[in-house]
């Protein structure tokens, strides 16, 4: 409860700061939306010339895309500080401040800054889901209606966990390898039915960097693709395991943190 009220305070403070520059926020929302439209362009153009991708229709792929975008939107809202963590918090020594406060450090890092414009992605994702669901005449059962938000939460947790683990690397090494952007750029690859890939890529996207569990697998129940049912029910487990792993790695990193001075 205390955490929730602190979160609300963090968010409203940040929102106030952003609203000081309304024009800038508007441009940020617009550019974020353009990026979303462009990333959707490949599918749109592809299906302008072909009618199906290994038996998957355009609307089905839009459904998967919409689901992934919804989760990714929430993730992007929260992940702003993860990208700049190495530089802002470790190299500049700002992490000392964080450690002095009586609140878990990860909570502070995630909720101190928000990429507000990415809420646009959540909305666009839901619109895409709605459109695809309507075109496909999906009739969700009561259980599915309850499972849907749970799947979104799991997706967000999986995205967050992967990038928390990668960010934790900067506790030990200065990030000279630049591992985060290439992994981030792989997110769209989880948006295709895994069966189009070979065994190696399927394994990579399911069990090493489990993007498929945050985009493709969670949609399969709603799309009535029974053959993926075991994977669908594994989604919460994958989210729980990766969340736990992320927390463990982060805490370990905090322990070995050495201040650079401030």
């Amino acid at each position: 409860m205390r955490h929730l009220s602190i979160l609300i305070h963090y968010f409203s403070q940040y929102l106030k700061a952003r609203l000081e520059y309304k024009g800038d926020l508007l441009i940020a929302v617009f550019t974020s939306f353009s990026a979303t439209v462009a990333s959707f362009g490949f599918l749109y153009i592809l299906f302008h010339r072909v009618s199906s991708l290994q038996g998957w229709k355009f609307e089905e792929l839009i459904f998967i895309y919409g689901f992934s975008l919804t989760c990714l939107g929430f993730f992007n809202v929260l992940s702003l500080n993860l990208y700049e963590f190495g530089e802002r918090y470790i190299m500049e020594g700002r992490f000392d401040q964080v450690l002095l406060r009586p609140l878990h450090s990860l909570f502070q890092i995630l909720f101190e800054a928000f990429r507000i414009e990415s809420l646009q992605e959540v909305l666009t994702g839901l619109v895409a889901l709605g459109y695809a669901g309507w075109k496909l005449r999906l009739q969700p059962t009561v259980i599915e209606v309850f499972l849907f938000p749970l799947m979104v939460v799991c997706g967000v947790v999986i995205y967050l966990s992967i990038f928390i683990i990668l960010t934790s690397v900067s506790f030990w090494f200065e990030d000279r390898i630049g591992i985060i952007p290439p992994v981030y750029n792989m997110i769209p690859f989880g948006r295709y039915p895994t069966t189009i890939y070979n065994v190696f890529l399927q394994f990579l996207l399911s069990w090493i960097i489990p993007f498929a569990f945050a985009s493709f697998y969670p949609t399969t129940l709603f799309l009535d693709r029974r053959e993926f049912q075991p994977y669908f029910y594994l989604v919460p487990l994958v989210a729980a395991v990766s969340g736990t792993m992320a927390l463990l790695v982060w805490n370990r990193g905090v322990k070995s943190y050495q201040s650079t001075g401030n």
Partner: peptide
């Protein structure tokens, strides 16, 4: 202020409009 958003949008627009991810005649 937030030019990073513009840079990101340009990144995706160029990936698409340059024909990198799919040929222009598609």
């Amino acid at each position: 202020q937030s030019v990073l958003g513009l840079i990101r949008a340009k990144y995706f627009l160029i990936e698409l409009l340059s024909g990198l991810v799919i040929p222009i005649n598609f």
